[in-house]
């Protein structure tokens, strides 16, 4: 937990570290690169439909409560993360899926402004992702 910092350390740790202190969040790992570039630099591949199904409303009236659901049809899904490109801290939540738990999660997140929402899945040792655009009428002050 609470390991901010270097991309090398993140790669070593499997997916990435999760900042839980405000100080760590300032230097979030996506610095200077778009989420997509960062994921690709980490060896992430864009998933084909319908290997990852990301359900996000096209338009959200209230960015403070945006319902998101992710289903993965990739074999051996171990982890599902939700990343919002335009948020001050893009990594919103990361779920660890133990064996026996279905690769599906639903939750509500804050979205600061219109932009892509990513579902990132670690399955069988590979990082895969897909994106959906979400338009926010009133930002969620994330």
């Amino acid at each position: 937990m609470c390991r901010g910092g270097a991309v090398a350390a993140l790669l070593a740790s499997g997916l990435w570290a999760f900042p839980s202190a405000r100080a760590a969040q300032v230097s979030m790992q996506f610095d200077g690169l778009s989420v997509e570039e960062t994921l690709k630099a980490w060896g992430g591949v864009r998933a084909d439909e319908p290997d990852i199904v990301l359900t996000v409303p096209e338009v959200s009236d209230n960015g403070a409560f945006v319902s998101v659901a992710v289903s993965s049809f990739l074999a051996d899904t171990r982890e599902i993360a939700i990343v919002v490109e335009k948020n001050p801290d893009p990594l919103v939540v990361r779920f660890l899926i133990p064996a026996g738990t279905e690769p599906f999660v639903s939750t509500r997140i804050k979205v600061a402004e219109s932009g892509p929402v990513y579902a990132v899945v670690r399955a069988g040792g590979t990082l895969s992702f897909c994106a959906r655009n979400n338009q926010v009428v009133v930002g969620g002050c994330a």
Partner: peptide, 17 residues
Amino acid sequence: MSATMSHAVSQDPLIGF
């Protein structure tokens, strides 16, 4: 299920699995 969350999860987190 286990999860690590940031402050960008909505107030009163609602999680389904």
